[in-house]
């Protein structure tokens, strides 16, 4: 499951090697792809943070004892898990202006990607919180702990560690989701690749580099997830 840093370093080194190689065809399209990569990263990083916040809110909202809060969370989760991301992106960008809310392409991409991933994340958070042993809740009652401190100090820190592997997978899905933002006119890594392909017809080279870059990004996410889990487990001690 968890991979050594070599798994990241080798493809990265290979990429660097490709770049510096006197490979005229690669030098021809790689700058454009790297421009696309910056767009992908600038969409992905804020989306990841936003998606985590949404997952936490919606996941806890679904477990809340306040009924309206629960209903809102359930509707949000079911809607965004039921409709595919591409349709959501189109809807945010082309239909929302009809309701008087015009989003820039970047905002629409950010919102679409993070709302979609957040719905999946909410279910992960819910599962992790539910997996907490009952004794933990009872101990909090015994110690007369207020609800806020109960969640902030006892339940969430333990539940979030359980959630890390599933959240890592969700993050990789989000990363793959950013490949669709060309639907709202952003030129991300995939769109740049397609555009370069139409200019240069170097299909195999372009798509190999594309796949390699996505693979590296996914490996970085996987590696940080494994690191994070390790650090948290050590911090929380043996359980």
């Amino acid at each position: 499951m968890s991979r050594s840093p070599i798994a990241i370093l080798v493809p990265l080194a290979f990429l660097a090697g490709l770049y510096f190689a006197v490979f005229s065809s690669v030098a021809q399209f790689l700058p454009a792809l790297l421009n696309g990569l910056t767009v992908t990263v600038s969409v992905a990083v804020p989306s990841i943070l936003l998606a985590y916040a949404i997952s936490l809110l919606a996941g806890l909202g679904r477990l809340s004892s306040i009924a309206p809060l629960r209903w809102v969370s359930v509707v949000y989760i079911e809607v965004f898990r039921g409709v595919s991301l591409l349709v959501v992106l189109f809807w945010l960008y082309f239909v929302l202006p009809e309701f008087g809310l015009t989003l820039s392409a970047y905002t629409a991409a950010l919102l679409g990607v993070s709302l979609n991933a957040g719905a999946y994340g909410a279910e992960i958070v819910r599962g992790a919180v539910r997996a907490e042993p009952k004794g933990q809740y009872e101990a909090c009652v015994t110690l007369n702990m207020p609800p806020l401190r109960k969640y902030a100090r006892i339940i969430l820190p333990q539940a979030l560690v359980i959630a890390i592997p599933a959240m890592t997978n969700m993050t990789i899905e989000l990363l793959k989701g950013t490949a669709l933002v060309s639907a709202v006119t952003l030129v991300d890594l995939t769109a740049a690749g397609v555009r370069q392909n139409q200019l240069t017809y170097r299909t195999v080279e372009i798509f190999s580099v594309l796949a390699l870059i996505y693979f590296c990004l996914a490996q970085i996410v996987r590696f940080s997830g494994a690191r994070l889990e390790h650090v948290f487990n050590r911090h929380l001690g043996e359980r």
């Binding site: 793959k176 995939t190 397609v194 392909n197 798509f207 996505y214 996914a218």
Partner: peptide, 21 residues
Amino acid sequence: EFMRGMPLVVVIFFLFFLLPE
């Protein structure tokens, strides 16, 4: 492992352009 880190669009476009070539 490789396929799980790759977006579906990339696969679609790749086949779409590669097969005719």
